[in-house]
Design a protein around this nucleic acid. Sequence first.
DNA 1: TAGCGTTCCTAAACAGGTTTACTAAAGGTT
DNA 2: AACCTTTAGTAAACCTGTTTAGGAACGCTA
Lengths: 340, 340
Amino acid sequence: MKKKTTIGDIAQQLGISKTTVSFVLNGKAREKHISESLEKKILDHITKVGYQPNQFAQGLRSGKTKIIGMMVEDISDPFFSSVARLIEENAYSRGYKIIYCSTENDTQKTKDLIQIYRTRQVDGYIIAPPPGIEKEINDLIDDKLPVVLFDRTIPGVETSNVVVNNYEAANDAILHFIQNGYRNIGMVTLNSDQVQMQERQEGYIDALKRIKAEPVIKKIIYHDDKENSIREIQSFLTENKQLDAVFFATNYIADNGLESIRNLKLIIPNDIGVIVFDDHNLYRLFTPSITAISQPIREISENSINLMLEMLEDDYDFSSVKSVLLKSSLIVRESSLAKG
Amino acid sequence: MKKKTTIGDIAQQLGISKTTVSFVLNGKAREKHISESLEKKILDHITKVGYQPNQFAQGLRSGKTKIIGMMVEDISDPFFSSVARLIEENAYSRGYKIIYCSTENDTQKTKDLIQIYRTRQVDGYIIAPPPGIEKEINDLIDDKLPVVLFDRTIPGVETSNVVVNNYEAANDAILHFIQNGYRNIGMVTLNSDQVQMQERQEGYIDALKRIKAEPVIKKIIYHDDKENSIREIQSFLTENKQLDAVFFATNYIADNGLESIRNLKLIIPNDIGVIVFDDHNLYRLFTPSITAISQPIREISENSINLMLEMLEDDYDFSSVKSVLLKSSLIVRESSLAKG
DNA sequence: TAGCGTTCCTAAACAGGTTTACTAAAGGTT
DNA sequence: AACCTTTAGTAAACCTGTTTAGGAACGCTA
């Protein structure tokens, strides 16, 4: 492997000092009074030989890595992997790379991962936080490390974040059920205090108040065995035969919920209407097709990376916290139309 | 933010030289004749103060990053994101981190990404290669950089790889169609020369020979507009009304193919039988459920990372190339059973 | 013409590890 | 006692950029 060209080689080839080369490379030619002719000569030569600075030497001196750590709940979840993909694309085009990992919504694993990221000295953190890591996140913030939360926030943590209108979206979904003649609407959600789940639940509860109906909620455990979750949801549906519609609060729950419905041989949307929070391109192809709340994946990605890059600017004022609230929209399909 | 402890601090606190600390940290205590008592003292002290070496300084000197670059076709594809997730998990537990990116099967983008990875000095590359990058991959290999290919190989590139029995799996799928009474079996695949796609196609063609049937193949363009792909597949099915079954060669094609079938109001599996290469947990929930070839995701992941870590060992013999061939299995569901 | 301000550029320090080359002391041999 | 070996440890070079401190040359003013 041929040895890489260093800044010293460049300097030597041009018969100047590496200091001068460094200044030019860092856009400080003007500030440091480098003549335009020399600047041009240096830039031309660098282009010619295809010089690429050594990231370690840069990082060693500057303390910057140009790496952003991204923590999603599960990289194999379609929602998170789509967001990750778009953030990656955007970040790369702006000179940053992303290191992903999956938290599995596990507090301890996430603490470990934050520790790993810290020792890897990532420049910033884009996180869909699991519960119970207020302290670790606040430690990051106290150390003036940029943190952007997305998908959910954490009470007691003040930092920039990008979330969607979970409450309204859930509320709209339930109102849509009501408009289509459903009256006994249940909800299956996670056994979780997390903000986004609470908001979805409240949206559901408040919508039911319009028809003076009582909420009927089943909470399942995130890490539960898949087969067990399915059984739980089946029992729930069996024990609440009055239900004519059900709202699944996540992707993951919906997979199991749809399987439960199938096992019980209930007919969608006649026996039971279905709406899922989080769309999936296969939902359109189900028989009947599945109504879903679609999150604005592109906007979530763009806003997250933009906030992060703002925070990475030298003169960023850490006391200013920006919250971006985006709209999710209900994609009406057959599963929520009784006459579908 | 409190300043980080350096190896110099440790040395100073113990009244010894940082050389000694470095030797102990790198497991060279014996080799460099450091006494056991001093070694223990150093290790204890390091544990106590929670010292973490600076990655840049290490990388600068050693040229190692402990980062493996992974290139998948599309991180938002369920197959690739599942593999990525498992590789990540495994790699982390063994001291390595993974940087993902998506190639979109685009030759130029991949060349750029390889360039980026090279300048980031990743230690190794795990790649699902797009076509047309023999040269870049061979350049990596010539420079003694470890490369593991997965999902597909490239003719003319000799390096460790992990693939599945595409030919047999496709062959079995078609034979299964035949056993279930289908006789006019079409295939929709990508307009691609890539090895894995060719193998799937040959498996299909050879199986048809058993019943002396002629292949009926439609090739669609990878980056084509989704709506356009759907139209193409619809035309194909319309123009070949004799077809009573269709084999979709990937996940991505199947999404569009299933939509085409739905648009044409064909009934699966009576009007047309369906088998998809690559399983998806929602396929089980389709009405009717979709028969699919399921790749051994966990084994693919484990073998890939294991091969990579072997290659990263100091004394690895680059002339030895290991190829791992894993079995995919047909998951029979309703869509391929005419009497389903 | 001494003094000052610019302009243009560089030597050397620095970041925090790893590795080489070397020393001091102890032990063993003849 | 002279010589060699081994043990235990260290000083300094090194990796490649960035940044600080400063020098030389020039023009301008008082």
